[in-house]
Design a protein around this nucleic acid. Sequence first.
DNA 1: CATCTAACTGAACAGTCGTTCAAATGAAAA
DNA 2: TTTTCATTTGAACGACTGTTCAGTTAGATG
Lengths: 195, 195
Amino acid sequence: MARKQGSHSDITGPRVQDTALRLIARHGYAAVSMRQIAAEVGVQAGALYNYTPDKQSLLFDLMRAHMQDVLDALAAADLRGDPPARLDGFTRFHIRFHLPRPDQVFVSYMELRNLAPENFAILESMRRDYETALEDILRDGVAAGVFSVPDTRIATMAIIAMLTGLSHWYREGGRLGMDAIEGIYCNLVQKSVRR
Amino acid sequence: MARKQGSHSDITGPRVQDTALRLIARHGYAAVSMRQIAAEVGVQAGALYNYTPDKQSLLFDLMRAHMQDVLDALAAADLRGDPPARLDGFTRFHIRFHLPRPDQVFVSYMELRNLAPENFAILESMRRDYETALEDILRDGVAAGVFSVPDTRIATMAIIAMLTGLSHWYREGGRLGMDAIEGIYCNLVQKSVRR
DNA sequence: CATCTAACTGAACAGTCGTTCAAATGAAAA
DNA sequence: TTTTCATTTGAACGACTGTTCAGTTAGATG
């Protein structure tokens, strides 16, 4: 039954990743079996091991790819201007990047504890880089006298939690579109740190 | 070997709950087995079924009890004054109640998808009640002209995400104590919605 | 055409899973 | 002391787990 038409590795590979992401987002890493993933892809469980050395790597690769995409996109965004403008830029970037990827956001947030320690450390470091990008903006704003926050580290965590939380309840086709959401969050974020 | 001293049901029962909470917070509901819980309690797996009809009920009871505690404590807090004072009261209440209960917060947040649909609906409804308490404050503040938010529902979700996020990274004995944290978050929250 | 080989199957391995239940236990009641 | 019964054990149930691998398939290559 193998290979009904053409070579399948470039088709099955991505399908394994996509299916794993969707199932893990929905049911959680521990609750999804390799056989479930295989069944949705349309192969037997053994075939998955042509595309991942084990289940743990499947999860880790998904999470690392997502975080790398975030960091690359942030670097490409190349935020400029005064601190308030850069803060708006960061807020809009976060929303525009994350809202269309709810499954990646969900998995990257919920499955950290299912990572092997060395994998966890790698992702935590990437996450820290992302947080630092925001904290730098806040620090510059405080130094320039345009922001007033009691503690830039906590303000950073608070803002990121606020933005990430958005991905957890926002559903496409809801009462408000992404543009409206962006404006509202820019307003909340900007005011929370202003003098 | 049964009952080495006295009747054990009033000792084992709470220990089952406590152990389940701790293990589920650490490893996740799907990744924790009844045998693991039993081993930490110090009984065989079968004995757990004197205290819960099944694993799902064990999770649900933990989560419902936590949400009920939250709602009861909020009602007892009896926030009074003008909207800014009530908003400060809500913020401080949230932090004071949730920071000492990191496991409950974690489980109630992460394990929603492992609930049976009817159990999920019950918890979602309780969560909605909590959110409404905050939204009422914001709406009153907007009506009174002391708050300015583009959308009270979104501001509610944003603030709660910010506060809940705190529980995910705050660790006792860190750089800042709970009192300092409270002040910082009151500042951030208050400014984010003020005129 | 025959050959090669990437891709996949299907079975097997050694465990673990949630749950049930007859039997054993031992503190409290009679 | 004997009886009672809440409590727990320990074994069993059928199903499922991640992973391995010899064998099969069929498109691509020569």
